[in-house]
Nucleic acid binder design. Structure first.
Lengths: 151, 151
DNA sequence: ATTGATGCAAAGCTTTTGCATTATA
DNA sequence: TATAATGCAAAAGCTTTGCATCAAT
């Protein structure tokens, strides 16, 4: 099914591309290009970093992979699942210690209202929404406690 | 008030820092470090790009400025206003043409949703939320029409 | 007078590109 | 067999850093 998606878009389904996609499929979290390169390298040692980048670019364009950055210089990649997917999550980012917490225990209310917001956007902007990327910034529990200690 | 914020955090309120903040205050949109450098340069020609970067880092740490990337390699900077601020907006990003639409005509429903979600997160994660960054991905009106033409 | 801030240029890192070679369709 | 894909190394681009100088406190 990966093969067909690539082929449908006019790309060849090569071993390197499959290996990259395997890593993305079997790993949770936010992987940098180098993370992916190192992991692919284990099963497919001849791969080059440039091919990883080239493959990721294709997968992003095709919509299979999602690319984003939060903090450091590196871009991060994740298998792109729509809001209904098992991996779909939002981020809590602590502005004090920079830790990133993924959460996916969405309340039914949260899900329902998001859906309605997206419908509203579709009506107002004629913009057909397929996915969203939501980050909340604030102070995590540990940093908050630390601050109280100091006071 | 900028001065005091910097000083409170142990930084000196220098002309260069004020100039950078002026540009951020008087410009709408997502500015790259170089955009800012060029604009500051007009009123404060002796500034160096490195100082712009150093200032931006401070302002981000202090919480005055918000840093993010969407697409190209460059980081973007904006005056950080909380969800209630006049500039606060969300993004609609077209995955076909990469255009970014800012919108701030939030529906009351949308505002209520966010507030409740943030309260829920606070309870579940003991995470004190101060801001959020929300992007919706999809296909913009123009790209959607173009696609229909092709069919 | 101290010590942090600055500018310049050089260094650092991630990502992209050129090109000869390899492998897919 | 034609042509896309790859690997390697070099190049590019944004950001950071070292250091001598300057300026805010």
């Amino acid at each position: 099914m990966v093969d067909s998606k690539l082929k449908n878009c006019g790309y060849r389904a090569t071993a390197g591309r499959k290996a990259v996609l395997d890593v993305l499929t079997n790993t949770e979290g936010h992987l940098s290009a180098e993370d992916i390169y190192l992991k692919v390298h284990l099963t497919y040692p001849s791969i080059g970093l440039a091919s990883v980048y080239r493959t990721l670019e294709i997968l992003v364009n095709v919509g299979t992979v999602y690319k984003f950055d939060f903090k450091d210089r590196k871009a991060r990649y994740e298998l792109a699942e729509g809001p209904g997917g098992k991996r779909h999550h939002h981020h809590l980012i602590c502005t004090a210690c920079s830790q990133v917490i993924d959460y996916k225990d969405f309340s039914p209310e949260e899900l329902g209202l998001l859906k309605r917001v997206e419908e509203g956007l579709y009506k107002r902007y004629d913009f057909k929404i397929t996915n969203h990327f939501i980050q909340f910034y604030g102070i995590c529990a540990e940093c908050n406690n630390r601050k109280e200690d100091i006071r």
